[in-house]
């Protein structure tokens, strides 16, 4: 698991989701990237109405880790478990209840270029598409600060001006820690929350 950066593509005025996806994927293919299957990330959110201080719990499935499930609490705790987690949560129905409209997912095309993995996904709630996600992973390196120069160069050529100007703070936790799947899942939850908010605002 290498360093991963995830962001939401901000669609220009007058461009629909399909057009944006086509634009980015043609850009990615021009760089020489090869299609490498599909990917899917699902996130279901739970809360505990009976426990006043409980934070929201996000349960994440990522096709990149088919045998694992990730549980992420809003305040930061993180768990990696096997596939039985969702069955277990449904047994705890009395405490953890699925949030209304809490299911959100992201599906799309994977690309490979050298050791880079590029994923373009459509984020949707229920059946309606809400936005576009762009994910870039550089697998051989496990320190975000070291390979940021390379990643930033790659992001520039994929999403142009929307690439972050410097290393985002959420890629670089405490000190020089190694990158972990937790940071990937946090970015997903963050993006999903942002997309939900903008949907509500509209």
């Amino acid at each position: 698991m290498g360093v991963t950066y995830i962001c939401q593509w901000k669609q220009p005025e007058g461009q629909n989701i399909q057009q944006s996806i086509e634009q980015i994927s043609s850009c990615v293919e021009k760089l020489g990237a090869k299609k490498a299957g599909l990917f899917q990330v699902e996130c279901e959110s739970f809360n505990a109405p009976n426990a006043p201080n409980a934070k929201t719990l996000h349960l994440i499935y990522d096709s990149e880790f088919p045998a694992s499930r990730f549980a992420l609490f809003e305040e930061g705790s993180f768990l990696v478990t096997d596939v039985m987690l969702s069955a277990f949560l449904s047994k705890l129905r009395a405490v953890w209840q699925p949030k209304k409209g809490g299911k959100i997912d992201c599906k799309g095309q994977r690309y490979e270029l050298g050791d880079f993995l590029i994923k373009l996904g459509v984020v949707s709630v229920g059946a309606s598409a809400k936005g576009i996600s762009v994910e870039l992973e550089y697998a051989p390196c496990v320190y975000a600060r070291d390979c940021w120069g390379m990643m930033s160069e790659m992001l520039q050529s994929i999403i142009g001006e929307q690439a972050p100007p410097s290393l985002p703070s959420n890629l670089q936790p405490k000190g020089t820690e190694r990158f972990s799947p937790e940071l990937t899942m946090q970015q997903y939850v963050e993006m999903f929350n942002n997309i939900r908010k903008t949907v509500v605002a509209r």
């Binding site: 760089l31 020489g32 990237a33 270029l113 050298g114 050791d115 880079f116 051989p140 390196c141 320190y143 070291d146 390979c147 120069g149 390379m150 160069e153 790659m154």
Partner: peptide
């Protein structure tokens, strides 16, 4: 390897490789 750019072309990446 991951931090330095190429001394010839000044870029980090060439066909996705450092």
């Amino acid at each position: 390897l991951f931090t330095d750019a190429c001394t010839v072309c000044g870029k980090h990446l060439d066909n996705g490789l450092p």
